[in-house]
Amino acid sequence: MSSPQKFQAESASDLVLQYVTFRLAEETYGINVMMVQEVLRYSEIAPVPGAPEYVLGIINLRGNVVTVIDTRQRFGLMPSEVSDSTRIMIIEADQQVVGIMVDSVAEVVYLKQSEIETAPNVGNEESAKFIQGVCNKNNELLILVELDKLMSEEEWSELAAI
């Protein structure tokens, strides 16, 4: 294969992906932009009695009920107070629309597939499965999260029932 052809082949295989980045506990995370429907300012979340621990409650989004997940709890991070920068990201995962509460939403970044590195797989915790990979962006390590794995099939069903 000649050099130009090789270059074209490499470019074609090296997809450029868009990620929305958000902050949680001083670290930056990224989720595929295609999964994000919108980002909301924090609004009051109505608790749901008997809901799983990782469910903060529900919100009314233009007449639709959306369940909000406690992302910190899900990631095994310490809880924190709600602030002005707290946001609820409305995402679609596993054919369900849910909200995930994050410390803040930063930006949309473009990442090449080749830039994404595999994260070490040494975690015993369930939450370790959410990590899709890591990527260095703007001199900072971005942790890419796979939201489909945020919950098990049972948990998604549980959420749907709320």
């Binding site: 994260a119 015993n124 915790e125 370790a128 990590i131 890591v134 390590l141």
Partner: peptide, 23 residues
């Protein structure tokens, strides 16, 4: 270092050095 959630306590995180993420 950048910690990754769900990892054991002996994993302190990742550190960027010389174009490499060192665990």
């Amino acid at each position: 270092p950048t910690p990754l959630f769900g990892q054991p306590s002996w994993f302190l995180g990742m550190l960027r050095n010389n174009n490499m993420n060192v665990s």
